[in-house]
């Protein structure tokens, strides 16, 4: 299943809830303000860094760029994708769950 998260982990529990329910082998795509969850060195970094072992985590490049977040500041293991990658992920998974 593909999970998308569009809220900052600092102001919403959607990333935490998503990580609690996503099974290993799932894909998580961070979009819009959700991309702040991809940042390394924050108080929320640990929960996502742990998950990258069993879950593939992606962040949407245009949303990172808009917010001034360069790839070298992200948690290692997070893959940056464009809008085409978003479409591919949606097609590759049988279901898409949006954590709004």
């Amino acid at each position: 299943m593909l999970h998308t998260v569009n809220k900052s982990p600092f102001e919403s529990t959607s990333l935490k809830t998503c990580l609690g329910l996503a099974q290993s082998g799932s894909d998580i795509l961070l979009i819009e303000d959700g991309v702040y969850g991809a940042l390394a060195g924050t108080i929320h970094t640990a929960m996502l860094a742990q998950a990258t072992g069993t879950i593939s985590v992606y962040a949407l490049g245009p949303d990172l760029k808009a917010r001034g977040l360069p790839e070298d500041r992200l948690i290692p293991g997070i893959k940056v994708v464009g809008y085409d990658g978003f479409v591919e992920l949606a097609c590759a998974n049988d279901k898409v769950q949006s954590w709004l």
Binding site: S8, E11, Y36, G61, P62, A66, R67, G68
Partner: peptide
């Protein structure tokens, strides 16, 4: 404060996302 500090983040570039860069 809180996520408001991200408003002042340098290097914002909205060209790919099609939004207005008001930074």
């Amino acid at each position: 404060i809180s996520d408001g500090v991200f408003q002042l983040r340098q290097g914002q570039d909205t060209i790919d996302s099609g939004m207005k860069n008001f930074s």
